[in-house]
Computed example of a mutant assay.
Amino acid sequence: MHPLAPPATGVRTPWHQLPASVRDGLETGLGAGVVDAVTQHGGFSPGVAARVRLADGRRAFVKAVSAETNAASPRMHRAEARCSAALPDTVPAPRLLTSYDDGTWVALAFEDVDGRQPRLPWRAEEFGRVLDAVDALGRVLTPAPYDAPSVAEAKAGHFRGWHKLIEAGAEDDDRLDPWVRANLRTLAGLAEPWAEHAAGETLVHGDLRADNMLVTADGRVVFVDWPHAVRGAPWLDLLIMLPCVRAQGGPDPEDVFTARPSGRAADPEGVTAVLAALAGYFVRQASLPGPPGLPTLRAFQGAQGTAAVAWLRKRL
Protein backbone atom coordinates (compact mmCIF):
# COMPACT_ATOMS: atom_id res chain seq x y z
CA MET A 1 0.00 0.00 0.00
CA HIS A 2 1.46 3.34 -1.03
CA PRO A 3 1.27 6.42 1.19
CA LEU A 4 -1.96 8.31 0.64
CA ALA A 5 -1.39 11.26 2.93
CA PRO A 6 0.68 14.21 1.71
CA PRO A 7 3.78 15.06 3.73
CA ALA A 8 3.25 17.10 6.87
CA THR A 9 4.37 20.60 5.95
CA GLY A 10 4.44 23.85 7.90
CA VAL A 11 5.77 27.06 6.39
CA ARG A 12 9.15 27.52 8.10
CA THR A 13 10.85 30.75 9.15
CA PRO A 14 14.68 30.69 9.32
CA TRP A 15 16.26 31.30 12.74
CA HIS A 16 17.87 34.54 11.61
CA GLN A 17 14.47 36.00 10.70
CA LEU A 18 13.23 35.76 14.28
CA PRO A 19 12.95 39.16 15.97
CA ALA A 20 16.15 40.01 17.85
CA SER A 21 14.24 40.11 21.14
CA VAL A 22 13.12 36.48 20.68
CA ARG A 23 16.61 35.28 19.73
CA ASP A 24 18.12 37.17 22.68
CA GLY A 25 15.54 35.76 25.08
CA LEU A 26 16.22 32.19 24.02
CA GLU A 27 19.99 32.62 24.06
CA THR A 28 19.79 34.10 27.57
CA GLY A 29 17.76 31.11 28.74
CA LEU A 30 20.16 28.69 27.06
CA GLY A 31 23.18 30.44 28.53
CA ALA A 32 25.02 30.74 25.20
CA GLY A 33 24.61 32.31 21.77
CA VAL A 34 23.50 30.42 18.65
CA VAL A 35 26.33 30.12 16.12
CA ASP A 36 24.63 27.85 13.58
CA ALA A 37 21.00 26.94 12.81
CA VAL A 38 19.59 24.40 10.36
CA THR A 39 15.87 24.59 9.55
CA GLN A 40 14.01 21.28 9.94
CA HIS A 41 11.17 20.33 7.62
CA GLY A 42 8.21 18.05 8.28
CA GLY A 43 5.46 18.46 10.85
CA PHE A 44 2.58 20.88 11.01
CA SER A 45 3.96 23.70 13.14
CA PRO A 46 4.40 26.98 11.25
CA GLY A 47 7.23 29.33 12.22
CA VAL A 48 10.75 28.37 13.28
CA ALA A 49 11.82 24.74 13.67
CA ALA A 50 15.61 24.51 13.73
CA ARG A 51 18.45 22.49 15.13
CA VAL A 52 20.95 24.95 16.56
CA ARG A 53 24.56 24.78 17.72
CA LEU A 54 25.57 27.02 20.63
CA ALA A 55 28.83 28.88 21.16
CA ASP A 56 29.81 26.47 23.95
CA GLY A 57 29.35 23.43 21.68
CA ARG A 58 25.97 22.26 22.98
CA ARG A 59 23.07 21.58 20.64
CA ALA A 60 19.35 22.27 20.96
CA PHE A 61 16.14 22.13 18.97
CA VAL A 62 14.25 25.43 18.78
CA LYS A 63 10.65 26.04 17.75
CA ALA A 64 9.01 29.46 17.71
CA VAL A 65 5.79 30.90 16.35
CA SER A 66 4.02 34.23 16.20
CA ALA A 67 0.31 34.83 16.72
CA GLU A 68 0.51 37.00 13.60
CA THR A 69 1.31 33.89 11.52
CA ASN A 70 -1.15 31.47 13.09
CA ALA A 71 -3.38 32.54 15.96
CA ALA A 72 -3.69 29.04 17.47
CA SER A 73 -0.03 28.07 17.48
CA PRO A 74 1.19 30.20 20.44
CA ARG A 75 -1.46 28.59 22.65
CA MET A 76 -0.24 25.16 21.54
CA HIS A 77 3.39 26.06 22.27
CA ARG A 78 2.39 27.20 25.76
CA ALA A 79 0.55 23.92 26.36
CA GLU A 80 3.59 21.99 25.13
CA ALA A 81 5.85 23.89 27.51
CA ARG A 82 3.62 23.01 30.48
CA CYS A 83 3.48 19.35 29.50
CA SER A 84 7.16 18.95 28.66
CA ALA A 85 8.22 20.51 31.96
CA ALA A 86 6.10 17.94 33.83
CA LEU A 87 7.11 14.76 31.96
CA PRO A 88 9.08 12.28 34.09
CA ASP A 89 12.63 11.48 33.03
CA THR A 90 11.47 7.92 32.23
CA VAL A 91 9.39 9.22 29.29
CA PRO A 92 11.23 9.02 25.94
CA ALA A 93 10.78 12.69 25.07
CA PRO A 94 13.22 15.61 24.72
CA ARG A 95 13.69 17.70 27.84
CA LEU A 96 12.59 21.35 27.76
CA LEU A 97 15.66 23.58 28.24
CA THR A 98 14.09 27.04 28.22
CA SER A 99 11.16 29.02 26.85
CA TYR A 100 10.32 32.59 25.82
CA ASP A 101 6.90 34.27 25.69
CA ASP A 102 6.29 37.95 25.01
CA GLY A 103 2.56 37.61 24.34
CA THR A 104 2.98 37.52 20.56
CA TRP A 105 5.97 35.24 20.03
CA VAL A 106 6.30 31.96 21.92
CA ALA A 107 9.56 30.02 21.58
CA LEU A 108 10.74 26.74 23.10
CA ALA A 109 14.19 25.16 23.22
CA PHE A 110 14.56 21.41 23.77
CA GLU A 111 17.48 19.07 24.03
CA ASP A 112 18.44 17.97 20.51
CA VAL A 113 17.67 14.31 19.79
CA ASP A 114 19.98 12.66 17.29
CA GLY A 115 17.36 10.72 15.37
CA ARG A 116 15.23 10.56 12.25
CA GLN A 117 11.53 10.21 11.57
CA PRO A 118 10.28 6.68 10.81
CA ARG A 119 10.60 5.68 7.17
CA LEU A 120 7.45 5.86 5.08
CA PRO A 121 5.66 3.85 3.84
CA TRP A 122 5.81 2.16 7.24
CA ARG A 123 8.14 -0.83 7.52
CA ALA A 124 7.05 -3.78 9.65
CA GLU A 125 10.12 -4.02 11.88
CA GLU A 126 10.25 -0.29 12.62
CA PHE A 127 6.50 -0.10 13.13
CA GLY A 128 6.74 -2.94 15.63
CA ARG A 129 9.28 -0.95 17.65
CA VAL A 130 6.99 2.07 17.58
CA LEU A 131 4.05 -0.01 18.83
CA ASP A 132 6.14 -1.41 21.69
CA ALA A 133 7.18 2.14 22.60
CA VAL A 134 3.55 3.33 22.55
CA ASP A 135 2.59 0.47 24.90
CA ALA A 136 5.43 1.41 27.25
CA LEU A 137 4.46 5.08 27.11
CA GLY A 138 0.96 4.26 28.33
CA ARG A 139 2.35 2.30 31.28
CA VAL A 140 4.81 5.01 32.33
CA LEU A 141 2.19 7.76 32.07
CA THR A 142 -0.49 6.01 34.15
CA PRO A 143 -1.49 7.81 36.29
CA ALA A 144 -0.89 11.14 34.56
CA PRO A 145 2.08 12.97 36.13
CA TYR A 146 0.29 16.33 36.16
CA ASP A 147 -3.24 17.69 36.00
CA ALA A 148 -3.61 17.77 32.23
CA PRO A 149 -7.03 18.57 30.75
CA SER A 150 -9.35 15.60 30.40
CA VAL A 151 -9.95 14.38 26.85
CA ALA A 152 -13.65 15.24 27.23
CA GLU A 153 -12.76 18.81 28.17
CA ALA A 154 -10.13 19.23 25.45
CA LYS A 155 -12.00 17.59 22.57
CA ALA A 156 -15.61 18.52 23.33
CA GLY A 157 -15.85 20.78 20.29
CA HIS A 158 -13.56 18.82 17.99
CA PHE A 159 -15.38 15.50 18.36
CA ARG A 160 -18.76 16.82 17.25
CA GLY A 161 -17.69 16.65 13.62
CA TRP A 162 -20.69 14.69 12.33
CA HIS A 163 -23.12 17.07 14.07
CA LYS A 164 -21.32 20.07 12.62
CA LEU A 165 -21.48 18.58 9.13
CA ILE A 166 -25.22 18.00 9.52
CA GLU A 167 -25.70 21.58 10.73
CA ALA A 168 -23.77 22.79 7.65
CA GLY A 169 -26.08 20.89 5.29
CA ALA A 170 -23.54 18.22 4.35
CA GLU A 171 -26.25 15.64 3.69
CA ASP A 172 -26.62 17.38 0.32
CA ASP A 173 -22.87 17.86 -0.24
CA ASP A 174 -21.76 15.51 -3.03
CA ARG A 175 -18.11 16.13 -2.15
CA LEU A 176 -18.54 13.78 0.79
CA ASP A 177 -18.16 10.02 0.51
CA PRO A 178 -21.61 8.64 -0.48
CA TRP A 179 -21.71 6.17 2.44
CA VAL A 180 -20.81 8.93 4.89
CA ARG A 181 -23.42 11.26 3.44
CA ALA A 182 -26.13 8.60 3.63
CA ASN A 183 -25.27 7.73 7.23
CA LEU A 184 -24.43 11.11 8.76
CA ARG A 185 -27.16 10.99 11.42
CA THR A 186 -26.38 7.39 12.33
CA LEU A 187 -22.69 8.28 12.68
CA ALA A 188 -23.51 11.29 14.85
CA GLY A 189 -25.54 9.05 17.16
CA LEU A 190 -22.83 6.40 17.24
CA ALA A 191 -20.23 8.96 18.30
CA GLU A 192 -22.47 10.62 20.92
CA PRO A 193 -21.17 8.72 24.00
CA TRP A 194 -17.49 8.93 23.02
CA ALA A 195 -16.41 11.01 26.04
CA GLU A 196 -17.42 8.48 28.69
CA HIS A 197 -15.52 5.72 26.88
CA ALA A 198 -12.40 7.80 26.21
CA ALA A 199 -12.09 8.87 29.85
CA GLY A 200 -9.14 7.66 31.93
CA GLU A 201 -6.14 8.65 34.02
CA THR A 202 -3.38 8.03 31.47
CA LEU A 203 -1.50 11.02 30.07
CA VAL A 204 -2.14 10.64 26.35
CA HIS A 205 0.14 12.33 23.78
CA GLY A 206 -2.93 12.86 21.59
CA ASP A 207 -1.18 13.35 18.25
CA LEU A 208 1.10 10.41 17.55
CA ARG A 209 2.16 10.43 13.90
CA ALA A 210 5.39 9.60 12.10
CA ASP A 211 6.43 13.28 12.09
CA ASN A 212 6.07 13.38 15.90
CA MET A 213 8.49 10.51 16.44
CA LEU A 214 12.25 10.11 16.14
CA VAL A 215 14.11 6.82 15.82
CA THR A 216 17.66 6.91 17.18
CA ALA A 217 20.65 4.97 15.88
CA ASP A 218 20.30 2.43 18.69
CA GLY A 219 16.62 1.82 17.85
CA ARG A 220 14.98 3.88 20.59
CA VAL A 221 11.74 5.70 19.75
CA VAL A 222 11.46 9.27 21.08
CA PHE A 223 8.12 11.09 21.09
CA VAL A 224 8.18 14.83 20.34
CA ASP A 225 5.58 17.62 20.09
CA TRP A 226 3.31 17.36 23.15
CA PRO A 227 0.86 20.31 22.87
CA HIS A 228 -2.22 18.05 22.65
CA ALA A 229 -1.56 15.98 25.78
CA VAL A 230 -4.71 15.07 27.73
CA ARG A 231 -5.87 12.61 30.37
CA GLY A 232 -7.69 9.69 28.79
CA ALA A 233 -7.99 5.95 28.29
CA PRO A 234 -4.75 3.95 28.01
CA TRP A 235 -5.67 2.80 24.47
CA LEU A 236 -6.45 6.29 23.17
CA ASP A 237 -3.01 7.06 21.70
CA LEU A 238 -3.06 3.79 19.77
CA LEU A 239 -6.52 4.49 18.33
CA ILE A 240 -5.71 8.08 17.34
CA MET A 241 -2.44 7.01 15.69
CA LEU A 242 -3.68 4.15 13.52
CA PRO A 243 -5.71 6.03 10.86
CA CYS A 244 -2.59 8.09 10.11
CA VAL A 245 -0.46 4.96 10.01
CA ARG A 246 -2.88 3.42 7.51
CA ALA A 247 -2.88 6.60 5.42
CA GLN A 248 0.92 6.42 5.24
CA GLY A 249 1.20 2.86 4.00
CA GLY A 250 0.77 0.98 7.27
CA PRO A 251 -1.22 -2.17 8.09
CA ASP A 252 -4.92 -2.60 8.74
CA PRO A 253 -5.84 -0.63 11.90
CA GLU A 254 -8.26 -3.23 13.24
CA ASP A 255 -5.65 -5.98 13.06
CA VAL A 256 -3.11 -3.83 14.87
CA PHE A 257 -5.47 -2.49 17.54
CA THR A 258 -6.87 -5.86 18.56
CA ALA A 259 -3.39 -7.39 18.70
CA ARG A 260 -2.08 -4.93 21.31
CA PRO A 261 -2.65 -5.36 25.07
CA SER A 262 -4.41 -2.00 25.53
CA GLY A 263 -6.64 -2.62 22.52
CA ARG A 264 -7.64 -6.10 23.66
CA ALA A 265 -8.53 -4.77 27.12
CA ALA A 266 -10.75 -1.97 25.79
CA ASP A 267 -14.53 -2.19 25.64
CA PRO A 268 -15.35 -2.86 21.94
CA GLU A 269 -18.47 -0.66 21.87
CA GLY A 270 -16.56 2.16 23.53
CA VAL A 271 -13.75 1.89 20.99
CA THR A 272 -16.27 2.09 18.15
CA ALA A 273 -17.87 5.21 19.65
CA VAL A 274 -14.52 6.98 20.04
CA LEU A 275 -13.43 5.92 16.55
CA ALA A 276 -16.70 7.30 15.15
CA ALA A 277 -16.00 10.63 16.88
CA LEU A 278 -12.41 10.68 15.60
CA ALA A 279 -13.54 9.91 12.05
CA GLY A 280 -16.08 12.72 12.24
CA TYR A 281 -13.37 15.11 13.38
CA PHE A 282 -11.09 14.29 10.46
CA VAL A 283 -13.84 14.32 7.81
CA ARG A 284 -15.20 17.64 9.02
CA GLN A 285 -11.76 19.26 9.37
CA ALA A 286 -10.86 18.22 5.82
CA SER A 287 -13.89 20.15 4.55
CA LEU A 288 -12.69 23.46 6.03
CA PRO A 289 -10.44 26.10 4.43
CA GLY A 290 -6.75 25.62 5.17
CA PRO A 291 -5.26 27.58 8.09
CA PRO A 292 -2.42 30.06 7.46
CA GLY A 293 1.04 28.54 7.23
CA LEU A 294 -0.13 24.90 6.96
CA PRO A 295 -0.65 24.24 3.23
CA THR A 296 -1.08 20.43 3.37
CA LEU A 297 -3.03 20.09 6.62
CA ARG A 298 -6.53 19.64 5.14
CA ALA A 299 -5.40 17.01 2.63
CA PHE A 300 -3.55 15.21 5.43
CA GLN A 301 -6.68 15.25 7.59
CA GLY A 302 -8.73 14.05 4.63
CA ALA A 303 -6.49 11.01 4.19
CA GLN A 304 -6.78 10.21 7.90
CA GLY A 305 -10.56 10.63 7.65
CA THR A 306 -10.75 8.17 4.76
CA ALA A 307 -8.72 5.63 6.75
CA ALA A 308 -10.77 6.16 9.92
CA VAL A 309 -14.07 5.76 8.08
CA ALA A 310 -12.85 2.55 6.42
CA TRP A 311 -11.80 1.21 9.84
CA LEU A 312 -15.16 2.20 11.34
CA ARG A 313 -17.08 0.48 8.54
CA LYS A 314 -15.09 -2.70 9.19
CA ARG A 315 -15.95 -2.59 12.91
CA LEU A 316 -19.62 -2.04 12.08
Rank of each mutant, 00 (worst) to 15 (best):
M1K: 07
M1R: 15
H2D: 14
P3I: 09
Q17E: 15
L18T: 15
P19V: 01
A20L: 11
E27Q: 06
H41M: 07
G42L: 12
R51P: 04
D56Q: 06
R58Q: 09
A67D: 09
A72L: 14
P74F: 01
P74M: 03
A79Q: 09
L87D: 00
P94D: 11
L96I: 08
Y100E: 03
D101T: 13
R116N: 02
Q117P: 10
R119N: 08
L120P: 03
R123N: 05
A124K: 14
A124M: 13
E126Y: 05
F127R: 15
D135C: 15
A136M: 13
L141T: 00
L141W: 00
T142S: 01
P143V: 02
A144N: 05
Y146Q: 02
D147Y: 09
S150C: 01
V151P: 00
K155F: 12
K155I: 02
A156H: 11
H158C: 05
W162Q: 15
D173H: 11
R175L: 10
P178L: 02
L184Y: 12
L187R: 15
E196L: 07
L203A: 03
V215Q: 02
T216S: 01
A217Y: 01
P227Y: 02
L239T: 09
P253G: 04
D255S: 11
F257E: 13
G263P: 08
A266M: 04
V274P: 03
G290L: 04
T296P: 01
L297C: 14
R298C: 09
G302Y: 06
G305I: 10
T306H: 08
V309Y: 11
V309W: 08
A310V: 06
